[in-house]
């Protein structure tokens, strides 16, 4: 019984995608379509959180899958395929975000939204005495949170996205980003504090 427990405790995490990935590497093109079907919504969502725009997110997510397809032979199976895929997505997302920020993409978008939208946002902010979950689900709050994410620096942004939005464990994030778990946690805490201040400011 004890040995069974130990076995299950130390058994490496199984990768559901291993067989499909092996088929891909052997040249089975349809196998990659299965992986696309399985992950494209998650990757798109992650891409969207990085760049905050559907068109850019679509392009970024396609780039991620293309890169994964081209580099599949380099996937050694040390980590799960999903971890590897999200690692690619995070790296590409971070780079795309930096690129867009350098070009003033987010500043221009903020300006384009204009004062009208800000006013409508302020009008639409619900009364804090109502159910907090209802408040958080509102479009306006979602927008405030996304804007706050956009304002984070890339190192903090990637951790918030991976942990709070995509739900990866600290261990997986540390593996993806090649960071110690402690650094991951402290960065996450700082990122949440920044978002908290923006949310508090917007809702107060």
């Amino acid at each position: 019984m004890v040995s069974l427990f130990l076995f299950s405790a130390f058994k490496p995490e199984t990768d559901d995608d291993r067989d499909i990935v092996e088929r891909c590497v052997r040249g089975d093109r349809e196998a990659f379509d299965i992986l696309v079907e399985k992950y494209y919504k998650k990757i798109y969502n992650l891409a969207y959180r990085f760049v905050g725009d559907s068109e850019e997110a679509s392009d970024l997510a396609q780039e991620v899958f293309t890169a994964a397809y081209q580099n599949l032979k380099k996937f050694r199976g040390d980590a799960k395929f999903s971890t590897w895929l999200f690692q690619i997505a995070t790296n590409r997302g971070k780079n795309r975000f930096k690129y867009l920020k350098r070009r003033g993409y987010f500043a221009n978008r903020g300006q384009a939204n204009g004062d009208d939208e800000r006013e409508s946002l302020e009008r639409a902010i619900p009364d804090l005495t109502t159910n907090p979950e209802t408040i958080l689900a509102s479009k306006q709050i979602q927008k405030i949170v996304q804007d706050a994410i956009n304002d984070l620096d890339p190192d903090h942004k990637e951790i918030v996205i991976l942990r709070d939005i995509e739900g990866f464990s600290y261990e997986e994030i540390a593996q993806m980003l090649g960071l110690p778990e402690g650094t991951t946690k402290s960065r996450l805490h700082r990122a949440r504090m920044v978002v908290k201040e923006k949310l508090k400011k917007a809702l107060s």
């Binding site: 969207y48 959180r49 907090p132 958080l136 918030v160 939005i165 978002v195 908290k196 949310l199």
Partner: peptide, 12 residues
């Protein structure tokens, strides 16, 4: 509330 707001962000 911030953590809940982040985790409750709609899937796009």
């Amino acid at each position: 509330m911030t953590v809940r707001a982040l985790t409750n962000l709609e899937r796009v």
